[in-house]
Design a binder for these strands. Structure first.
Length: 883
RNA sequence: GGGCGAUUAGCACAGUGGUAGCGCACUUCCUUCACACGGAAGGGGUCACUGGUUCGAAUCCAGUAUCGCCCACCA
């Protein structure tokens, strides 16, 4: 547009509709090649920084990314206009378990397992895949016009992040905050790895409650009872039972506590213990206890010193401890155990039972509580620091209510299982001294934690050479990888150069200004970052946390890959433009962190919501086209500021409105009121600038050729004033809109200002508020004028007048102030209502010359009269039905 | 079991003490030289329910109902 815009006559060549696709690509490239968003840490200006939530390299762009991006980029672009030294840092996440799952699936299709390839070859494949797939989402983020510094793009598994992970692990270990031990963990048989509590989702499932008899070893109790009845939803675990618990002090069982039962099928003698965990209200009041396969039973086992018998292998099949059930898959084993119990006469009854079953988020199969040796982070000391900071609103949550959710989770937090039996990810920086345990890693093999193998060797040497350890030292690094979130937890500072304390970016931009993310990862990510940051930087990693909702589909369902109800942002960008999509998403956010719903027609891939925003973009395009046709080839700069004394009523009104909207918009952008900001600008641009101001000045922009002399001079001066105000308003509007519609505003700003391509609106200063222009009274009066014009138009419509018919208009008002405004605006009213003439009378004067055969309407205390005798058949009008 | 959110026009949503609003859809008119991805004029809501506070409540308070979400070890 910049090239087409000047000189003026050529503007006729501008298309009537805005075509976003080419324009957006052009500006994206211009911004990027010019380094417009590459900040310099040594540059002046208050620092403002954001690290983006790194999307998984697995994925392609979904609506959630588009939404998050729209919000972040709006904030960041606004701060840049405010003159701050803004860093917005992009990157991607290696998504350990997700990527490995995909790769293993690919291998499986080829009939191979990862073990066939070996670790090295598998990782090579993974990197190849990352190089290929990671580029997809990055390219898609670019299409949104994200004003990030691509030069600083990071990946959670790159060299810098890996160094940070190793350092973090070592420091936590040195502080005693990382430990290794055998505990009951959530085991996902599908991915063959432990997962954390957060990666487990409870699902309601229709199952059964089996009631079994466990016979008393002694044969019969004093009262003649020969067995206890227990109920379970998981019969296969009975093979690992090591006790039956009963309610303490329950008269039914009091005398049995201490006696033993003989476990059916297995023949093991197991004690009857009394434990408070047993609920008197539920079932038989007796609970079978399988400490190695249930978290509650594990706790009971600890209290009563019960043995742990693991009957299941890591792949979900029964192991040798399961006797004749060995080798059966856990679900087959369940059937087999029930059958065997029935056959043995131990089955009392089966009830249908709906209950919650823990599922693995990733594997989509029930997780198995399994005894396993894993690495853990001791979280309480880290969480305590976060809770303390939160008392000073550090970080500050927006909306505030999320701080409670965050705090509650940090209270009574459980330790974090960080080891994963995966290859893709950060390998745990611990080396086992396998020479101590016959060359293999066992649960008791000693280990050293170190920064690298050399350091590990030195440490091991000091501990394990000479004396009883006098044999050649052999080390082997722990084969396991770390939970992806361990590296994500370092993201706000690892990306800025930590652990290098002298890193310029870290010094300049840490802590970051705001984290923008969805509520669904407050625990996964936000809390992990604050815990890690507290430990390593002594500060919370961001000042504010802006929590947004989810994007739901047209049926108000959460969009998800598995449900297949996602809406492809790229389709909408192709159809309507990235600006339209961004504007639509932000415009829906007005409320505080609510989910937003995006309307969508799957048959045609259209969205009325996004289309409305596209239409808005087109409106802006056209009002700029109009301006370019009417500014006589001049720019805001060449026109200069209007002379305050020359301003007309409409000019002063729009300048007052502009000043007010400018102030409101800055406040809204600055306080995460992005939805309000977008709505305010939409209404200002469309309803006030386009619908009223532009209509009002059309008359003044045309100077009739027949005017001569002083009249001509006056008209030209007035034309110049109108041009000055129009240019000023549009220019300021583009600045204000820029955070929301960066490409369009950049394009139109260039068209209007004729600035060179390499000068960017994105880097201009926000227009300062012109406080002197604010005029409450004027705005109120002008609203009355608008109403008066509407009444006239309404009466004309009611009368069925043709647009070409002009009629006299009479206003009657007792309020001198209003009368003065109407009188001053006579020419405007004439133009906008096709009035033959306009008269403004006070009630007395009106009574003196009553208009007969007239239509009348009111607006407040203003009376509007249209004497239309002779133009319209009033009697016919009166007789017709409605309105 | 605990907590949070929502309930306003046909649809989707703003509005948080003072005469009910935006977008889409709908009705009528207008192809007037920025825009039909448009313009003008309209129709449509006892703001979930019940009480309370107040001169005044969609808005504040208490409770109820419905829907949704999060957390929690009931076999």
């Amino acid at each position: 547009m910049a090239r087409l815009a000047v000189p003026a006559p050529v503007t006729d060549a501008l298309p009537k509709t805005y075509d976003p696709v080419g324009t957006e690509a052009r500006w994206q490239q211009a911004w990027e090649t010019s380094g417009a968003f590459h900040p310099d840490p040594s540059a002046p200006g208050e620092p403002f920084s954001v690290v983006i939530p790194p999307p998984n390299v697995t994925g392609s762009l979904h609506m959630g990314h588009a939404f998050n991006t729209a919000l972040i980029d709006t904030i960041v672009r606004f701060q840049r206009l405010q003159g701050k030294n803004v860093l917005c840092l992009p990157g991607t996440d290696h998504a350990s378990i997700a990527v490995q799952t995909i790769l293993e699936k690919q291998l499986k299709a080829e009939g191979k397992r990862k073990e066939d390839l070996g670790r090295e070859a598998f990782l090579e494949k993974a990197w190849e895949w990352k190089a290929h797939s990671g580029g997809t989402i990055v390219g898609q983020l670019r299409r949104l016009g994200y004003s990030v510094d691509w030069r600083r793009e990071r990946f959670t598994l790159d060299a810098g992040c890996s160094a940070a992970v190793i350092e973090a692990f070592n420091r936590l270990h040195e502080q005693g905050l990382i430990y290794r031990g055998e505990y009951l963990v959530n085991w996902c048989p599908a991915s063959g790895s432990a997962v954390s509590d957060l990666e487990v989702e409870m699902k309601e499932v229709d199952g059964h409650l089996w009631h079994f008899r466990y016979p008393l070893t002694a044969g019969a109790a004093a009262d003649g009872r020969t067995y206890l009845e227990v109920a379970t939803t998981r019969p296969e675990t009975l093979l690992g039972d090591t006790a039956v618990a009963v309610i303490p002090k329950d008269p039914r069982y009091a005398d049995l506590v201490g006696q033993t039962l003989t476990l059916p099928l297995v023949g093991r003698e197991i004690p009857i213990v009394a434990d408070d965990h047993v609920d008197a209200e539920f079932g038989t009041g007796c609970v079978k206890v399988t400490p190695a396969h249930d978290p509650n039973d594990f706790a009971i086992g600890q209290r009563h010193n019960l043995p742990l018998i693991t009957v299941m292998a890591k792949d979900g099949s029964m192991n040798e401890a399961a006797g004749c059930f060995q080798g059966l898959d856990r679900f087959e084993a369940r059937k087999a155990v029930v059958a065997a119990m029935e056959e043995g006469g131990f089955l009392v009854k089966v009830e249908d039972y709906r209950h919650s079953v823990p599922f693995s988020d990733r594997g989509k199969v029930p997780v198995e509580p399994l005894l396993s040796t894993q690495w853990f982070v001791k979280t309480e000391p880290l969480a305590a620091r976060c809770r303390e900071a939160l008392e000073q609103a550090d970080p500050r949550f927006v909306p505030e209510r999320w701080s409670k959710v965050y705090r509650d989770w940090l209270t009574d937090i459980r330790d974090w299982c960080i080891s994963r039996q995966l290859w893709w990810g950060h390998r745990i920086p611990a080396w086992f001294v396998v020479s101590e345990t016959g060359g293999v890693i066992t649960d008791t093999t000693p280990y050293v934690v170190a920064r690298d193998e050399a350091e590990a060797r030195a440490k091991a040497q000091a501990q394990f050479s000479g004396g009883t350890h006098a044999h050649p030292l052999v080390l082997e690094q722990d084969p396991d990888a770390l939970d992806t979130w361990f590296s994500s937890g370092l993201w706000p500072f690892s990306t800025l150069g930590w652990p290098d304390a002298d890193a310029a970016d870290l010094a300049r931009w840490y802590p970051t200004s705001v984290l923008v993310t969805g509520f669904d990862i407050i625990f996964f990510w936000v809390a992990r970052m604050t815990m890690m940051a507290g430990a390593f930087t002594g500060r919370m990693p961001f000042q504010d946390v802006y929590i947004h909702g989810l994007v739901r589909d047209e049926n108000n369902r959460k969009m998800s890959k598995s449900a297949g109800n996602g809406i492809d942002p790229l389709l909408l960008i192709d159809r309507y433009g990235a600006d339209a999509l961004r504007f639509a998403l932000v415009r829906e956010v007005a409320g505080a962190g609510q989910d937003i719903r995006l309307d969508y027609d799957r048959k045609s891939d259209t969205s009325a919501t996004v289309e409305a925003s596209r239409n808005f973009a087109n409106k802006l395009w056209n009002v700029t086209r109009f301006a370019l046709m009417n500014l006589g080839g001049e720019t805001p700069a060449s026109l200069g500021e209007p002379d305050p004394a020359a301003l007309q009523l409409a000019d002063r009104w729009i300048l007052s409105r502009l000043a007010r909207v400018n102030r409101e918009t800055a406040e809204r952008y600055g306080s995460y009121g992005l939805g309000e900001a977008s709505k305010g600008l939409y209404e200002f641009a469309w309803n006030e600038v386009c619908d009223w101001y532009v209509e009002l000045i059309k008359r003044r922009l045309q100077v009739p050729a027949e005017l001569e002399g002083a009249a001509r001079e006056a008209a030209l001066a007035d034309q110049r004033t109108a041009r000055q105000v129009l240019a000023k308003v549009l220019q300021a509007l583009f600045v204000m809109l820029h955070p929301l519609m960066p490409h369009l505003s950049e394009e139109l700003w260039h068209g209007l200002t004729a600035e060179p391509e390499e000068t960017f609106l994105a880097l201009q200063p926000w227009s300062a508020l012109d406080a002197a222009a604010l005029d409450d009274n004027l705005e109120a009066s002008f609203a009355e004028l608008i109403q008066a014009i509407r009444v006239v138009r309404n009466l004309r419509a009611v009368a069925g007048l043709k647009p070409s018919q002009s009629v006299p208009v009479r206003f009657v008002s007792g309020r001198a102030e209003l009368a003065a405004v109407l009188t001053a605006a006579t020419a405007d009213i004439t133009a906008l209502t096709r009035a033959e003439r306009v008269e403004v009378l006070d009630p007395a004067a009106a009574a003196a010359s009553p208009a007969t055969k007239a239509l009348a309407g009111v607006s407040g205390e203003l009376q509007v009269v249209l004497p239309i005798e002779g133009l319209v058949d009033l009697d016919a009008l009166r007789g017709r039905p409605g309105p």
